[in-house]
Design a protein around this nucleic acid. Structure first.
Lengths: 337, 337
DNA sequence: CTGAAAGCGCTTACAG
DNA sequence: CTGAAAGCGCTTACAG
């Protein structure tokens, strides 16, 4: 049997399509009697409105795209969870797009081949240049997340990465640490994320009156926990001495904890460690991880606010907003006593 | 300016809409000369086909829904990553739906209010009964994941949870453990997942000739790492003695590792631990976690295969397929020496 | 409060 | 190989 359409319901209920449509969309000015008869027909026929038909007629799909490199990375999966819930509260569904952190993947997002699929895009770029982002896909509302380059024309939310990295570094200095390493940036060319966090680390050292020692910058062959652990092992093998590590992100920190414990070094007694993102596991590992916690709820709320404004027609220049962060202190780098 | 449509391109190129459509969709029987002229017009006008128009005309959206409780749970985020990639290879995009693990959330999935939005649904239910699932949303192709109840009418892929739990338990017994606990099932009514894993645990004990001791069943107020850690702390406080733990999932295992280390118990010397899912963190914690690794790639591939067959018109009874698993041995419960 | 009709932007037999 | 026309299933002014 063919799918039931609006017209079928109208026929059965003995009204026009317009009236059925009014009932379906909950329009209020329908007489109670008519509404009941129509609802009965809808139930009898198990009618389900067709989303494509509606989208085509209204010009809206009720969907937002959420784009980042890889949803299996804890920070992104937790962000996806949050944004999915908040978007759902506003009546939007979420389309998940992964770029694999490649330039081609990110370009595909920006120059999307199809229109009308989503009403807006939330995009956390890793590699793309500001100039390329500026020519984003046609006229779809766009909002950028993260510390990457944001063209002036596009809305953007972030936290102050430099201040956050400096806060972590300063905290370790206040704990009396004098040889504070930085772990987890790329071995080759740096992502914007690594760059700004390294700058903040340097600022933190300066504020504490500590010298910058380039040998304390422990790069990772790849931005993940396994390679970060390996980088720490190799640093220890080469006799590098340090009493604290500021990690680029929690994954790097988990790698560091693992490598330090393998070598019998105590955290935080021998080496204090801070992470970044405050993913759920940070509180669960042993020792638990001190970490920079970005205010992701505010981040996500602002992103959705701005996106909805654009969807509703706002066409001004890009807004750039900075959300708060907090350094959450746990066992790996406890509060100063 | 209004969005450019197929007709606009046709006008500029001086051909019919049909011809433009052929070029856009890569239909081969178009003369080279015409194709070039049309492509030029497409580029000049920055034409983007409208997805809703296409969906309405073809009856397909090119989207699949992926549904489970919460994408921030590592197993699900890793599964979403994998399925997203595999679906993308087949030309599908992924719509993410979270149920929050609530009955209402799962019911909403099954009785979806809209049609035509997705071509198929991949759904891992937690709570819904088989009978309710059987009346799934209209005529949308459906495939079920996991050890939940699957009605005969619906396609379903899973691993043999009973065998897997028995394998973990047997392994601990072969390590010489005699008081093997089970951790992480619900305090109240059990999910199907917990039920089958508990049965497998019991089978494993039997195979090893060990008695079932109900006091060794350590339930958790909530299925997550934090509550599992708390449950272990309380068990230790009450003087419960055990030398191994089979955990319901990796999160419970991470909780167990944390609680045991807090109390100065050595893993695996004092207590050996196995997890379930083999999420990325399992290899990164210290000590690293032995874990049941379901063959998720096969699971996902089969799910997509069956879904595509249904999308292509297959209308037979449900297929039920069982993928492999493997017990990955790491430090927390190493190979028998 | 309700109806008849046009239109959203595509694809697809059907002709030629 | 290409064109003219109908149709996919909705919504929305416009009338009444």
């Amino acid at each position: 049997m063919a799918k039931t359409r609006l017209q079928d319901v109208a026929d059965v209920a003995g009204v026009s399509m317009k009236t059925v449509s009014n009932v379906v969309r909950g329009y209020e000015h329908v007489s109670e009697k008519t509404r009941l008869r129509v609802q009965q027909a809808i139930d009898d026929l198990a009618y389900r409105p067709n989303a494509s038909g509606r989208s085509l007629a209204t010009g809206r799909s009720g969907m937002l795209a959420l784009v980042f490199s890889d949803v299996s990375i804890p920070y992104y999966s937790e962000l996806a969870h949050l944004i999915s819930e908040l978007a759902s509260d506003r009546g939007y569904r979420l389309l998940l797009e992964q770029t694999s952190g490649t330039l081609e993947g990110e370009r595909a997002v920006v120059s999307a081949a199809e229109g009308g699929l989503v009403d807006g895009v939330i995009f956390q770029p890793s590699l793309l240049s500001s100039a390329e982002i500026a020519q984003h896909r046609g006229d779809v509302p766009f909002v950028l997340l993260g510390e990457g380059p944001a063209p002036l024309s596009v809305d953007h939310v972030m936290i102050d990465n430099i201040a956050a990295a400096a806060a972590a570094t300063s905290h370790l200095a206040r704990l009396g640490r004098r040889r504070i390493a930085f772990l987890g940036h790329e071995l080759g060319s740096q992502t914007q994320t690594s760059k700004v966090r390294l700058i903040g680390y340097q600022n933190g050292l300066e504020q504490a009156g500590l010298p910058l020692d380039l040998s304390l910058l422990i790069a990772s062959r790849s931005v993940n926990a396994g390679e970060s652990a390996q980088a720490v092992r190799e640093a220890l093998d080469h006799g590098l001495e340090f009493d604290a590590i500021v990690c680029r992100d929690d994954l790097a920190a988990f790698g560091a904890l693992r490598a330090l414990q393998e070598r019998g070094l105590r955290v935080p007694e021998d080496v204090a460690v801070t992470g970044w993102d405050d993913v759920a596991m940070a509180a669960l590992v042993h020792p638990s991880l001190s970490s920079i916690r970005p205010d992701t709820r505010t981040l996500a709320t602002w992103a959705l606010d701005m996106l909805e404004e654009r969807i509703d027609g706002y066409d001004g220049i890009g807004r750039h907003r900075v959300a708060d962060f907090e350094l959450v202190l746990r066992e790996s780098a406890p509060a100063v006593s």
